[in-house]
Design a protein around this nucleic acid. Structure first.
Lengths: 117, 117
DNA sequence: TTTTCATTTCGATTTTTAACGAAATATAAT
DNA sequence: ATTATATTTCGTTAAAAATCGAAATGAAAA
């Protein structure tokens, strides 16, 4: 059976506060796991899992970029349910305190400094 | 603190398959708890809880109607995030098997027959 | 006013989801 | 080749959500 899968996945993917923050960050620029980890203050494995959920929902795309994985908003969604959801996500939460703060941080950090320990 | 509340509630509210089905049913006509219970095949208390979550999210309105509570889609949302979410919900899942079947049932049942035991 | 009945609230249980650290993987740098 | 490091996978634990039945509520019907 298993109907409703696509939409269910989209809403489920967005029902987590952290994942919503990730989407709103990626709207500004692609990010790697360690950058997102630094901002969300979660374990790397947790962030990686969140990203795979967003990818499964079709909202986000992950691409290898040298040492890193670059995650970005899916710009060519197969499904118009996904593209309309992404459109909706573009204009919500723009003035939210957490979102604007997250974006301020990502615009000022250097991946090479942030990720190397 | 507690930012992201409104949107979080909307997505959380829609992240449950049963609640999504309720919204899609209410798009066709207002329904009482026992009608929805009959279709979702869940306990009355569970359905009542789902409805309160949808109401809290601002997607649905509950109104006393004689013996019953009528639940309907919120037609005058205060928030444009809610109204745009409701707009989005109008055109998704229209050809989904579960949704069309739910709607077929609600259009053919009589509340007075269905609810009196 | 007593009964009936639709709905809600409550308490408990089960299921699902989030989170973590450790280990595995894979790739770039040395 | 070996080391370093970014990410993923795995196993476990903790937190949140869904579900139920029973009891409470409240309004309509008798």
């Amino acid at each position: 059976m298993k109907t409703l899968t696509i939409q269910e996945n989209i809403f489920k993917a967005l029902s987590d506060k952290g994942r919503l923050r990730v989407v709103k960050m990626l709207q500004k620029k692609p990010l790697c796991v360690c950058e997102i980890t630094e901002i969300l203050k979660l374990a790397t494995s947790t962030v990686s899992n969140h990203l795979s959920i967003l990818c499964d929902a079709g909202l986000v795309i992950g691409e290898k970029d040298g040492k890193w994985m670059n995650y970005r908003i899916n710009t060519e969604p197969k499904n118009n349910l996904i593209s309309s959801a992404l459109l909706y996500l573009q204009f919500i939460l723009e003035d939210d305190e957490t979102i604007t703060n997250d974006r301020r941080i990502i615009s000022s950090v250097d991946r090479n400094v942030l990720c190397c320990k």
